[in-house]
Design a protein around this nucleic acid. Structure first.
Lengths: 124, 124
DNA sequence: TCGTTGTTCAATCTCTGGGTTGAATATCCA
DNA sequence: TGGATATTCAACCCAGAGATTGAACAACGA
């Protein structure tokens, strides 16, 4: 896996166990044992998942005697969300521009570029 | 990697090359060669990346003579975004409820639960 | 038809992710 | 101090990701 921030965050989210852990933490802090309880995997496996989440900045961990309470951190989620948002709407945008272009053509203006993207020639 | 839809989408996004490909496609359709051009990896590697994106539903591919134009599909992005959104704001929510609780305490009501999460006992 | 261009398939390599078990460490409580 | 509980570390296994190279397939154009 690539080690840039966004890749690490998306990779951390690409596992149902880890997403379930985050969902649980959204309801409040929890210890490793509490987090592991719903799953069939070993405690050590959960511990590894938590490390992945921590590395991604998605959780932070405190200390309370022998417990290591986990807490959800939302900033990386914001970052990931921002990336997605940038491309989520292009389909619509493209349609809007296409419709606008059609409108101009109908009204006799004509000759517009749909989306301004570079289009290298397909030479052979 | 887990094979549920959300995991497949997040895993597809967890690679900078694939994100760059999506970013390029947001500016319009492109062929494999066009998509591969900015990268130093082999064409075959890019072809594999496209397969991953296709499996995640993030792109669809047409046929135009010997070219296989790729097109961005935004629906899985919407899905991923929706998942993130559900947890992105809990920090704020928790703060809001905490502030509300403090407000109640100050006004003499007192005894409120911060966020209503279950908290199993830490028995030994 | 033949050469060229675009793309994929197949075999292979290496590295890492996610899982396991067993031992170690940390902290509490009697 | 010593036993119990919570958590992590270490070593290992296996499947799959991402890359490579070489060959195959598809479609054009002269």
């Amino acid at each position: 896996m690539a080690d840039d921030r966004l890749s690490v965050v998306f990779a951390a989210l690409a596992d149902p166990t880890r997403r379930a852990i985050l969902a649980r933490l959204a309801r409040g802090e929890a210890t490793v044992n509490e987090l592991a309880e719903p799953f069939e995997v070993s405690l050590q496996a959960v511990s590894k998942h938590l490390k992945v989440l921590e590395r991604a900045g998605l959780i932070t961990r405190g200390r309370d005697a022998q417990w290591r309470p986990c807490r959800l951190e939302t900033e990386p989620l914001e970052e990931a969300s921002a990336w997605i948002r940038r491309y989520r709407d292009v389909q619509t945008d493209r349609m809007d521009r296409l419709e606008a272009a059609i409108g101009r053509i109908r009204s006799g203006a004509g000759d517009t570029d749909e989306d301004g993207a570079e289009r290298p020639q397909r030479g052979q």
